[in-house]
Design a binder for these strands. Sequence first.
DNA 1: TTTTTTTGTGAATCGCCATTCACTTCTTGG
DNA 2: CCAAGAAGTGAATGGCGATTCACAAAAAAA
Lengths: 203, 203
Amino acid sequence: MSYKRSFLMEERLADNRQRILKAARALVAEGGFNSASIAAVASSAGLSAGAIYRYFPSKSALFVEVLTSAIDHEIAILQDIVQGEGDVTARLRACVESFANRALEGPYLAYAFIAEPADEDVDEARLLGRIRFGEVFKSLLVEGIDKGEFPAQSIDIGAACIVGAFTEALIRPITPRSKRDARAELVEGIVAFCLRAVGAKVS
Amino acid sequence: MSYKRSFLMEERLADNRQRILKAARALVAEGGFNSASIAAVASSAGLSAGAIYRYFPSKSALFVEVLTSAIDHEIAILQDIVQGEGDVTARLRACVESFANRALEGPYLAYAFIAEPADEDVDEARLLGRIRFGEVFKSLLVEGIDKGEFPAQSIDIGAACIVGAFTEALIRPITPRSKRDARAELVEGIVAFCLRAVGAKVS
DNA sequence: TTTTTTTGTGAATCGCCATTCACTTCTTGG
DNA sequence: CCAAGAAGTGAATGGCGATTCACAAAAAAA
């Protein structure tokens, strides 16, 4: 009597959902939120506009998920580095480098993470993401100070400043109309700035 | 034959224009771009919506002007400090303090300067503003390195990072839903971070 | 004062999308 | 194969707010 989704059906549905997310991510990545209308996402995912609403209650819910999962991924990478080996200075360096490099890959996506305005809900997710990035750096700062690698300093402010510093330095090249060469130099410059800022010994 | 505006008329028109700008600024300052619809600006300036278009060709033109003139003002203040007395370190400190303090006064306006997304045109103006802020810090960095107060370092990146650092540190408290106490501490923390970052001697 | 030009009004238009919905197409269970 | 339920479609709807426009009020010219 009652309808029961076959395994294959379940798969297909799940797959659709993924495809929607992926399409949305890709659109944001290459053109910012503006170019990511429901219609565009739908067609790019090979579905109709209406179908999107079988998977997500609203546009912002969709993009919150896009953002959040991208951030999750990013944070996981950073966490790995933080929990890794080496002195705190080296790990801080690695975090900044890693983040910066990835940001330089997908300009718009990073831009969207960081700066592009959108929905209230999406913005909230973004803010949360920043805070989470901040936490990662906070933990490094605490450890560094503990081990005497860094001088005493305000943890919260320092963490926010680090996030802000590389964020801003990235946004200029990230921002639409500009080439990005000298990537390595840029990243190195940012790293150096951050290390000096926290008072790391090896500059 | 041809119509010629009386002096009083000219005055009144100029005054209207100013009132529109002021209303727009005020609205942005207290509620961000969202709450600054043409209708709102108009009524707050004591005019009809249609009238706005006699003074500005479009909404974005209006807001570009709001933003630009606010930034001009800000830059002028910083320039003054830069051209002032004292060693470079002290002036850098003064710049960061000054900017941060003013940002903390009018949360939303600063937020709008820095982060709130809007029109393409407005964003462009914002980007330009950031670059201009960057210039100010660049000149300080150059001077500081020249005089041996700071170690050699990448000027452009350093300047961008400074702008980014205090910007981010300010945005969190600036962002709508959060109290802001401990203002002095925050500002001091940011200053300290920036000074360490440029390698200033007195920390 | 009458005429002409400019300024001001605010309701109607217009464009833009997200969201909905009546309908079609596919799945499932019999 | 058929009936019932689920998924998918895409044109219509609806809301929002910038922009326009036919008209009214005010100011200058005659």
